[in-house]
Design a protein around this nucleic acid. Structure first.
Lengths: 163, 163
DNA sequence: TAATAGTTGACTAAAGTTATCAAGTATTAT
DNA sequence: ATAATACTTGATAACTTTAGTCAACTATTA
């Protein structure tokens, strides 16, 4: 899971799409990239690239011609943030050694387990947040803090770090 | 929190440093970057750049001249992975809008809360893993899976995503 | 029916930023 | 002095983002 601005742009765009699709009831008309570009201040060219991938990954459908645009290919509840990011930001292999072959001598690149575990945590969280969740949060003005899976957050350590 | 290969290199190098410092008992002699470079296959030039930042952040001390090198500036238990990453990979502001000013119209860039929450989760995990933890895991041959804070991991969703 | 315009789809390339590496300079133990 | 080593600066490569071109498709309308 690679976390870059690219993935964030994609999520933002998809959320914009979801919001404007929801607005027009059930079978709304497609949303144009030009509209998303304007509303979210993302360059049209970049959006075209991103949606090209989102389409190939089956997350959106396209409609050509006037009145055309993009529509979500699945119900909002079935599209997770992790899917969106994975679609545009081909997942980086967190272990830098592919499988486990070309690792260093002393026990397979050492940090391997750290990144693998972290990767799972990130995926776990992002897979649990769907477009529907974000739309709901957006409409109700609430913050998104899905499934509080974390048992205790250990504020002390966090503050020591961010200082 | 930005997660790139840069941060991973830094953690790997710091772990190497910790391992070789621990080996030579209490007040061991400094570890040279040339040694880390050879053992971990990281270019010397790159290591120099990384340690320059680690030094400025107070995570390591340097000793110049022959027999010189770097030493940890604090006990291994007090150096967390998140500190290392933050030192070299100046934390990206996950919200793309700095504070909350130049966000889009319709309620401050929408994805704001998502990234903020994710950021905390990542920080929470990485702040809980110290060099001492990793050294211990390395010596005992165990995997690192610190503080099992996650209550349930929801395998089904994860598999659906990675597929 | 045909022309027009709005829109995606597939490229190429250029500008800007970041990551990585290489070479030279300063410092100090011997 | 000399050599080992940290430090500093500059150059190269890779990635991200924006820009531009042209083709294909389709709703609208004259």
């Amino acid at each position: 899971m690679k976390l870059t601005t690219k993935g964030r742009f994609a999520v933002t765009a998809m959320l914009d799409l979801a919001l404007h699709e929801a607005k027009g009831a059930a079978d709304a008309r497609p949303v144009t990239l030009a509209g998303i570009s304007e509303r979210q201040s993302i360059s049209l060219s970049y959006l075209e690239q991103l949606f090209s991938r989102l389409r190939r990954q089956g997350l959106v459908n396209s409609v050509r011609g006037p009145g055309g645009g993009y529509k979500l290919a699945k119900p909002q509840a079935e599209i997770s943030v992790s899917q969106i990011i994975s679609a545009v930001d081909e997942l980086i292999d967190a272990t830098q050694c592919g499988g486990q072959e070309n690792c260093r001598d002393e026990g397979r690149c050492m940090t391997h387990d750290l990144w693998a575990t972290l990767n799972n945590k990130i995926l776990d969280y992002l897979a649990g947040v769907s477009l529907a969740d974000m739309v709901a949060a957006q409409n109700s003005g609430q913050k998104i803090s899905m499934q509080p899976r974390v048992c205790h957050s250990d504020k002390a350590k966090l503050e020591a770090v961010s200082a």
